[in-house]
Simulated scan of single mutants.
Amino acid sequence: MTPTAQTFPDPEAALAGAQFADRYVLITDGLALTAHGAAEHTLGRAPRWISRLTQLRNLAVRPFGLKTGAEPDMLPESRIGIFPLISQAPGRVVLGLDDRHLDFRMLVEVKDLGAGRQEVAVSTIVKTHNLLGRMYLAVVKPFHRIIVPAMLAQVLTKSS
Rank of each mutant, 00 (worst) to 15 (best):
L75I: 02
W49V: 09
D103S: 15
G44A: 01
D22K: 07
A32R: 15
L26S: 11
G133I: 00
P72T: 02
A21K: 03
P11M: 06
A21R: 00
S51T: 12
R52C: 00
L85E: 02
L75E: 14
T128D: 08
P3D: 07
E40Y: 00
P90E: 12
P90C: 07
A18C: 10
T128N: 03
P11V: 00
D22P: 11
V93L: 09
I80K: 00
E71C: 04
H101T: 04
Q19K: 09
L53D: 05
S51V: 08
R57P: 06
P142C: 06
E71W: 09
I27F: 08
A13V: 09
L113K: 10
L102N: 01
Y136E: 06
T128S: 10
I50H: 04
V140Y: 08
P76L: 06
E12N: 12
L97A: 09
R134H: 11
Q55G: 12
P84R: 02
E71R: 14
R52L: 13
K111G: 08
R45W: 06
R48S: 07
A32N: 14
E109K: 02
M106H: 05
T2I: 03
T54R: 14
R117G: 12
T7F: 05
T157D: 12
K141L: 13
R134G: 08
M151R: 05
V108P: 00
L66T: 07
I80C: 07
T128W: 03
T54I: 14
M151V: 12
S78R: 15
D22A: 04
G91T: 09
H101K: 02
R117T: 11
A39F: 04
T2G: 01
T157M: 01
R45N: 09
D98T: 12
R117H: 14
A39Q: 02
L43Q: 01
R79Q: 14
A32I: 04
P90K: 05
G114M: 07
Y24I: 00
V94P: 08
F8L: 11
T34M: 09
Q88L: 03
L15G: 00
K141A: 08
A32E: 14
Q88W: 02
T2V: 07
G65R: 04
I82K: 04
D103V: 04
P9F: 06
V93Y: 05
Q118R: 11
L152Q: 09
H129L: 03
L53T: 14
I125F: 10
D112M: 03
K141N: 10
I80N: 00
A138N: 13
D29C: 07
A16R: 13
N58R: 11
L59I: 13
D73V: 00
A150I: 06
A38D: 13
D103W: 05
V155H: 03
V61D: 07
A39K: 01
P142F: 00
A16L: 11
D73T: 12
E12F: 00
I125P: 04
A32F: 07
V155S: 01
E119I: 04
Y136T: 08
L131Y: 12
T42W: 03
T54D: 11
L43I: 05
F143A: 15
G114Q: 03
R57C: 08
T2N: 14
G65Y: 10
D98P: 03
D29V: 06
V148E: 06
A89P: 04
L31V: 11
I125R: 02
R100G: 13
D98I: 01
G69A: 10
T28V: 09
P11S: 02
L132K: 10
A18V: 02
Q88V: 01
H36Q: 07
